[in-house]
Design a protein around this nucleic acid. Structure first.
Lengths: 110, 110
DNA sequence: CCACGACTTGAGAATGTTTTCAAGTCATGG
DNA sequence: CCATGACTTGAAAACATTCTCAAGTCGTGG
């Protein structure tokens, strides 16, 4: 028998539970990116980035391919974009009923 | 200024990233439950359960109320149910292209 | 063919989360 | 009014993730 479903779900959400991985997925939901492009956008050490990308690869959320000297990444689960949008709207609901973090919600795409 | 949005999202997903918390939310998405009902359904120590409930309370995903001797919990963010469903379907997509955990996907509601 | 840029890997230290245990609180039935 | 069942809290131990640093791979331009 496989892993219980609720545990697979927990692991799935856990892989979304890291700021750098969220940023990566946000960027990828627009278009494929090379690793050095993430480095420009994300404020993270190359080796740390590589490990976060490895986490996303292991869970099959992204795939990588090489083109010339660069390595590109691509989302393999397009629905993740919906999840990011859903999180955004849930967060804005929670924020509305409380305080904090709200101003940010109006300016960004995801 | 508030917390950056991508970080708030990561924290949000992190609170979903625990098997007991997933079970709790699954049960709550059907109806309110008393703490002792979770205990019957979840295989977890009372104090551990209480801590996981506290995590969900802190992030405003559930609220609790007391009725007589029992404490009840209720989801305060109904959209979470959609997230659980989305995760289920994404997982089934990933599983279909690989192996493992698949059999479980047909029998359960969330 | 070899030096360089682009990226990954491994290993350990630093942090964070989860679990457990003992000690509470709170409401009710006796 | 106090014993009991239902639940929560705090603190420490156990476990897991993240970060950093040094060393490595892989292609390509010179």
């Amino acid at each position: 028998m496989g892993v219980p479903l609720y545990q697979a779900k927990a692991e799935f959400f856990k892989t979304l539970g890291h700021p750098a991985r969220i940023r990566i997925l946000e960027l990828l939901s627009e278009r494929d990116h090379a690793v050095h492009e993430f480095l420009e956008a994300i404020a993270i050490e190359p080796s740390n980035l590589s490990q976060q990308l490895a986490v996303l690869r292991r869970t099959s959320m992204v795939i990588s391919y090489r083109r010339g000297g660069e390595v590109f990444y691509s989302v393999s689960v397009p629905e993740v974009r919906d999840l990011l949008l859903a999180a955004r709207s849930i967060l804005s609901g929670i924020a509305a009923s409380q305080a904090d973090l709200e101003p940010e919600l109006s300016r960004t795409a995801l």
